[in-house]
Write a protein that binds this DNA or RNA. Structure first.
Lengths: 210, 210
DNA sequence: GTAAAAGTCGAGCGCCCACTAGTTTTCCGG
DNA sequence: CCGGAAAACTAGTGGGCGCTCGACTTTTAC
C-alpha cells in the first residue's frame, strides 16, 4: 500500500519482494475486479482470474493467501484508487458544493462500468451475513450515511435543504437512489442517465436551482 | 398453473400426475426460493434445495428438467403469487390511489424479506447477459417503467405531479428508490423504514399532502 | 559469483456441482 | 387388486472448485 517493496529493513534476514512484484499484484487485482464484477465473488473463480493474466492458480495464490483475502485486497485497492482519482472530501465541501460533488461522482461512476457492476453484485451478495464482504458493506453504508447526513445537515443550515426533509432521511434516500439507478443502468445503459436522474432527485429535496 | 392435475384428457394413454404432485412442486419451489434468495442462482445448489425438503437431487430433477428451468418456475410462481396476494392494477387505480398502492406494496414487501432478498440478488446477478434470468429482468424493468410512467402521467394530468418532473423520470427514479432502499434494509433492517422513506421521496415530486 | 529468498508451476487432493441411467417404490384407474 | 405410469432413490459421470505440495526458475544482496 505504501510505496516500494517493503521499504528498507534494519537488520534481520528477510529479503523483501522483487522489483516487479507490486506490478504483478496490481495485474492480479485488476483481473480479479473484472471477474468478480462479472460473476460475483461466490461464482467468480481464481482459475478464471489467473487465466485472464496467463498465470497459474498456484502462482496467483503465492501473492494472496486465499480467495477472500483476494477480495479484500480488491476492495482495498478500489477504495484507495477512488480517493486518489476522485479526491473529494464531501464533509469539507459541505452544502451545495458537496451536492455538486455527488453529481460529479455519479458521472465518474458512469465512466467505470465494471466498478459499478462490482459494487452492485457484491453489495447484493454481501447482504448475506456469511459473505466475506458482509462487514465491509455494513461499515461502508454506515460511513456513507454518516457523511451524507453531515452534508445534508450543512445544506439545511444554509437553508438549502427543504425543511420537511431530515438530513438522515436525505442521506438514506440519496444512497438508495444512487444504488437503484445503477441496477437499471447495468441492465440497459440507454435506459437511464444516472447523473441527470440524480440531479432530478435532488430537485425534489433542495430549495435552490440545481 | 391452472388447477388440478393436467385436467381431463380425452383419450390417449398418458396418465397425468399423482394427487400430491402439485403440492410437492410447490414445496420444491418454496425451498428453491429460500436457497436462491440466500445464495443467489449461481451459488445456490440443487443439493441444498433438495436437502431442505428431505429429497434426493434426482427426485427433485424429476419435476424440473434442469436448474435454470427451476429458477424460471420460481420466478413464475412469485409473479403469480404477487398478483394473487397483492392484486393491484396500478394503471387502473391511476393517480393518487396508485401512489398509495405503491406505499402499501413497500409495506407488504417488508413483510416478506426472503422475497426481497431473492429479487435483490437475482437482479444484480441478472445484469450479466449470460445469466438465465437476464431477459426476465430486462422485461420486468421495462414493464415496470411502462406502468409507473402511466401512473405518473395520470398523476400529472390530475395536477398532482410537480410540473418539472417528467412521468418517465418519476418512473425510473421511483423504481430506483425502491430497489436501493431494499439493499440498505437487507444489510440492516433497523437502518431504514422502506415505506416511510418512499413516502418521503414522493413528497419531493408530488403536489399534494401525502 | 553465489547462496538463499521470492516467484512460478505442474500435479493432484478432497470436495461440491449439475445432470444421467437404471432400478425400485408408490400411486391409482380400471 | 392389479398392471402400468409416475415418482423417488442409488449410484454414478465428468467437470469445476479452492487450495496444497514439492520442484524448478528468477532475482538480488552480499
Amino acid at each position: 500500500m505504501t510505496a516500494t517493496r517493503e521499504a528498507s529493513r534494519g537488520v534481520g534476514k528477510p529479503r523483501g519482494s522483487y522489483a516487479k512484484t507490486e506490478q504483478k499484484r496490481i495485474e492480479i487485482l485488476d483481473a480479479a475486479l473484472e471477474v468478480f464484477a462479472q460473476s460475483g465473488y461466490r461464482s467468480g473463480s481464481i482459475r478464471d482470474i489467473a487465466a485472464k493474466i496467463g498465470m497459474s492458480e498456484a502462482g496467483l495464490l503465492h501473492h494472496f493467501p486465499n480467495k477472500s483475502a483476494l477480495l479484500a485486497a480488491v476492495l482495498d485497492r478500489r477504495d484507495d484508487q477512488a480517493s486518489e482519482r476522485f479526491p473529494i472530501d464531501l464533509r469539507r465541501l459541505g452544502g451545495r458544493a458537496a451536492v455538486s460533488g455527488l453529481l460529479e461522482l455519479a458521472a465518474y461512476n458512469a465512466s467505470t462500468p465494471n466498478v459499478v457492476a462490482l459494487y452492485c453484485i457484491l453489495s447484493a451478495e454481501g447482504t448475506s451475513p456469511t459473505h466475506p464482504a458482509h462487514a465491509y458493506f455494513i461499515n461502508r453504508y454506515q460511513a456513507a450515511r454518516g457523511i451524507f447526513e453531515d452534508v445534508f445537515t450543512t445544506l439545511q443550515n444554509d437553508g438549502d435543504l427543504r425543511n420537511d426533509v431530515s438530513p438522515a432521511s436525505a442521506a438514506r434516500s440519496t444512497i438508495a437512489m444512487m444504488d437503484g439507478l445503477q441496477i437499471q443502468w447495468l441492465l440497459d445503459r440507454t435506459s437511464v442517465n444516472m447523473t441527470e436522474e440524480l440531479r432530478q432527485f435532488f430537485r425534489g429535496i433542495v430549495n435552490y436551482d440545481i
